[in-house]
């Protein structure tokens, strides 16, 4: 499950939810909470994207509570699709076909890093992190492009 929140108080909300480590996150960097329940990607100064464990049904309530009285919006973005792949199989393929937006670099992309890129003109966000023991790359794209991206990656 992916959740997004953004706004002037975005960092304050992130810190309320996930604690002090979040404030050290650089933009387009991420961290996974010690209990492996959440992966937190910082997209801008006050913009965050959260991956939650499938079984965490309470997160929406926690998020709503943290956002109360704050200048942020939060949502599950219905227009956003996601695909996940093991890093070792997908990164070599991505290096062949994806063009990162300068000055981002795809080569040697470390864990807990993300970047905006395009595959044949189609926009993606590429995010590498360790999720419940698996080193994976999650690709975010427009829901309408999900099949096309999947085809490009030759993974169904």
């Amino acid at each position: 499950m992916l959740w997004d929140f953004a706004g002037v108080d975005g960092l304050a909300v992130a810190m309320a939810l996930f604690g002090e480590p979040v404030k050290k996150l650089a933009v387009w960097r991420s961290l996974v909470t010690p209990d492996s329940c959440y992966a937190i990607l910082r997209l801008c100064e006050g913009n965050f994207r959260i991956r939650t464990a499938e079984q965490d049904h309470n997160f929406s309530e926690k998020l709503a509570q943290a956002c109360t009285g704050k200048r942020v919006w939060y949502a599950q973005l219905t227009y956003l699709g996601a695909l996940s792949f093991p890093s070792h199989t997908i990164l070599p393929r991505l290096e062949q076909i994806a063009t990162p937006k300068p000055p981002f670099r795809l080569h040697n992309l470390p864990l807990d890093c993300a970047l905006p890129a395009r595959i044949d003109g189609t926009a993606i966000v590429l995010w590498r992190y360790l999720w419940q023991g698996t080193d994976l790359v999650q690709i975010h794209c427009a829901q309408r492009d999900r099949q096309k991206i999947s085809d490009y990656l030759q993974v169904k």
């Binding site: 050290k24 933009v27 387009w28 960097r29 910082r42 992309l109």
Partner: peptide, 11 residues
């Protein structure tokens, strides 16, 4: 710097 970023460099 690539794969670092402002906050990472600051800290």
């Amino acid at each position: 710097f690539a794969h670092l970023g402002v906050q990472a460099e600051y800290w």
